[in-house]
Design a binder for these strands. Sequence first.
DNA 1: ATATAGATCTCGTCA
DNA 2: TGACGAGGTCTATAT
Lengths: 249, 249
Amino acid sequence: MDKDVLEYIGKINTALENNETVIIAANCEVNYYGKVESFLPSGDRIILIKSDKTLLVHQPTGVNPINYMKEGTEVKLVVDKGQVILKAKHLFLKDFLDAKIHLIHFVNTHKLEDGGKIEVVGSEADMSDMIYENPLLIEPGFKPFSREEHTKVGFIDVFGTDKKGKVVVIECKRDNADFKAVQQLHRYIHKICKSKGIKEENVRGIIASPKISSNAKVMLEELGYKHVSVNPPKYLARYDKKQKRLGEF
Amino acid sequence: MDKDVLEYIGKINTALENNETVIIAANCEVNYYGKVESFLPSGDRIILIKSDKTLLVHQPTGVNPINYMKEGTEVKLVVDKGQVILKAKHLFLKDFLDAKIHLIHFVNTHKLEDGGKIEVVGSEADMSDMIYENPLLIEPGFKPFSREEHTKVGFIDVFGTDKKGKVVVIECKRDNADFKAVQQLHRYIHKICKSKGIKEENVRGIIASPKISSNAKVMLEELGYKHVSVNPPKYLARYDKKQKRLGEF
DNA sequence: ATATAGATCTCGTCA
DNA sequence: TGACGAGGTCTATAT
C-alpha cells in the first residue's frame, strides 16, 4: 500500500469524523444497493461528502449525480485485501453504496459553515401572489378572495369570483401548462363542488401560465375552462415594457 | 489583491480553458437570473465546474445543488474593483449566474476521463419486463402481448388479455402508487378505447406496484380497476424466498 | 422543437 | 407518518 494512499485514508476518515466536507477525485467503480441496484464501471469521478453526511458521486458531465446517498449516511474508507473501498450505509433507509477506489487524483477536506437561505423570485407561489394583487391580469371584474389555499379541498393557487359572482378557480404554472395542469384544475373543481354541493357548471376554471400545450388547450376547452397568458414575476422584469403595468396597481 | 488569490484565479481560468474539472471551496454569495431570479447570501459552498461546463453550487447539506448552470455554460473568474467574481453565462438558455467570492478555502483542478455507463436494476421498465416474462405475477390466465408501448395511444407498461380474452392494461409503479397513477391508467384506457372503438367496460385496468395510497385505491375501485402487489425486481432479491418463484418460469 | 413520463427523483408542507 | 404538489426540476425518448 502506497504511503500517499494511507495518508489520504487517514485524512479522509479524520475529516469525516469531524463532519468536514470531503472531496475526493478518483478513478473508481460504484455499486449501490437500496431502492434499486446499480453498477457503475470504472471512471474518474468526484465524490462529495457533505457535513450532514450526504454523499454524491458525480461523473464529469451533467447536472445530476450518478449515485448518491441521502443525509445521515455512515461513511468510511477501508482497506480490504489491498483494495481501497469507500463504504457508505444508511441503515434506516436500507441503502448501501460501495466505491472501489483504484486511483486518487486529489483529496480536499474543509469545515464549511453556511446558514444562507436562498430567495427565489418567479415561482408559482409568486405568480399566485401577483395575480391576487393584480386581478386584472386575469380579467376585468375578477375578485380573488384567497391564494395558496392548503385545505382538504386541495392546494388552490387563486380562488375568487368573476364579475357575475361565479366562483373562479385558478391554477398557475410558471412555464408551459400541459394536460396534467388541466387534470389538476379539474380535480380541484371536482372536489370543491363535491364538498360544497355546487354544480360543476357553476364554477369556472382558469389556467394562468405563459403558454399552454395544444393537447392541454383542447382538454381545457372540452371541460369549459379557459387559459389566460400570464408570465411569472421577476424583479428585473418589473421594469420591462410589457409588464410595466404591474407596478401601477 | 492577495498573491495567493491571483494564483488561484490563474489556475482556475487555465483549468477551465483546458476543460478540466474544477472544484472551489469558498465563502461566496450567488445571484442567478434566468428562468427565475435567485439570491443566495454569503456562506461556505462547493463550486463544481465539470468538463462539459456544467456548474454546480452546493451548500454543505442536502442532495440538490442550491444553484446550477447546465452543460455548455461559459465560466470565468474575474476581478472587478478588488472583488473576485465567478461569472457564468449560458447565452442559448439566457441564464446568468454570478458568484461573488469572499474567501477561497481551497481549489483543485484535474482532467477527468469517464466513459462509464451505469446499469440500474429495479426501474419501472424492469418491472414491466418482469411482468411480461412472468404473467402469473398479475393473475392466472393473463397473457401479455406487448410492453413499454410508446405509441400514439400512450406509453403503456404492459398490455395483454385475461383468461376470458378481455383486454388488460397495466400501469407499473416502482413505489407507492398515488392517484396520479390511477389517472394515468384511466387516461391510457380512455385513449385506447377511443382509438379502437372499444367500450371502456370491456377493458380492465391494473396498477402493479408494491403499495397504493388509500385515495388512489378508492379512485381505482370507483373506476372498476384493481391493484396487484408487485415489487420491482432486484438481482439479489431473486434469491429471496418470496420472489424465488421468479426463476421458475 | 414539443410532448410525455420516469426518477434511488428531492424537498417542503400539512393533516 | 403518509399524502400531495412544486421544481430554475433533470433526463431520456418519441414524434
